[in-house]
């Protein structure tokens, strides 16, 4: 059989990747293209007609100041949440790989918040913030100020994702060979110096991965936003994804919502790809 023949290559490809390619096209590529088409119509989400309106939705999307406010808010939220998530996750990982007693128990414990769905988690914390906090004399965070609501959202996100990112950092810690640490210590490093100068640079891949995951998740946050703050007070905690959903399904401007979703996607993709590119460039191999 001629292995350079096109038909051979195609059949090999289909054998191994056919099903996933079809599924990927069916659930990602086609809806994406259809969504793109809808941004050029003034469809309201339910009517049978989809009148073509050209670039009107994009003009409307760019002119929508509440969308940009929501996007700006999402950027602030993401920056703070991503930094905190990764600091907390790294410290937790450091702790549970340092040989603490019962470290497997801790690993499981810190990971559990991630297993609770975002909606449930939001309601649980809503209870904590609106009942437990005032009861012990802490200020009300929800329904009072924008800063309070943002703080609540960030806190819950950190609690939710830190355990997940911790697992990736744990894997990073474990992948660095003990012999390198020992060599460094023989050369005169203190244990903390050997962690900082030897282990951390070798874990760069974990950092890149964790940052990518936390950035994309924070940018797309919706479930916690919905169940924890519902955008209150006065729409000042509406994040970009929630705004897109409201625009498309609640205000029935499907096209405009879809156009804004596309803008959100592009922003998210640029940030994510840049971050991975910059991160990968400096990666060191052990």
């Amino acid at each position: 059989m001629d292995r350079n023949k096109m038909s051979y290559k195609v059949s090999q490809f289909l054998t191994f990747a056919g099903v996933s390619t079809i599924l990927f096209c069916g659930v990602v590529v086609l809806p994406f293209i259809y969504g793109l088409y809808l941004t050029f119509t003034s469809w309201d989400g339910v009517s049978l007609e989809k009148p073509f309106v050209g670039l009107e939705n994009y003009t409307a999307a760019f002119a929508d100041s509440t969308f940009w406010a929501a996007l700006g808010r999402t950027v602030i939220y993401s920056v703070i949440a991503v930094i905190l998530i990764n600091i907390v996750a790294f410290l937790l990982a450091y702790m549970v790989t340092s040989g603490v007693k019962g470290q497997n128990f801790f690993r499981a414990g810190f990971f559990i918040p991630n297993l609770i769905g975002g909606i449930v988690l939001g309601y649980v914390w809503q209870f904590v913030f609106s009942r437990a906090f005032p009861a012990i004399g802490l200020p009300r965070l929800l329904g009072t100020t924008e800063a309070g609501a943002m703080f609540a959202l960030i806190m819950v996100s950190v609690w939710q994702y830190a355990g997940y990112m911790m697992l990736i950092y744990v894997a990073g810690f474990m992948s660095v060979s003990k012999s390198l640490m020992e060599a460094a210590q023989i050369d005169g490093c203190t244990p903390s110096q050997s962690t900082w100068y030897v282990t951390v640079p070798l874990m760069r891949a974990s950092f890149v991965q964790c940052l990518f995951l936390s950035i994309t998740r924070c940018f797309m946050v919706y479930d916690v936003n919905l169940s924890l703050t519902k955008g209150e007070p006065a729409g000042k905690s509406v994040m970009a994804a929630m705004h897109v959903y409201n625009q498309a399904f609640t205000y029935k401007n499907y096209g405009t919502g879809q156009a804004q979703a596309l803008i959100l996607f592009i922003v998210c993709a640029i940030v994510g790809v840049t971050q991975v590119y910059v991160g990968k460039r400096g990666e060191v191999a052990a």
Partner: peptide
């Protein structure tokens, strides 16, 4: 009333309720 009335003006009225 348009579909976005309750959400948009409702947010404004929350500001009024809160005294903002």
């Amino acid at each position: 009333l348009p579909d976005d009335h309750y959400a948009k003006v409702g947010a404004n009225m929350q500001e009024y309720l809160a005294g903002d």
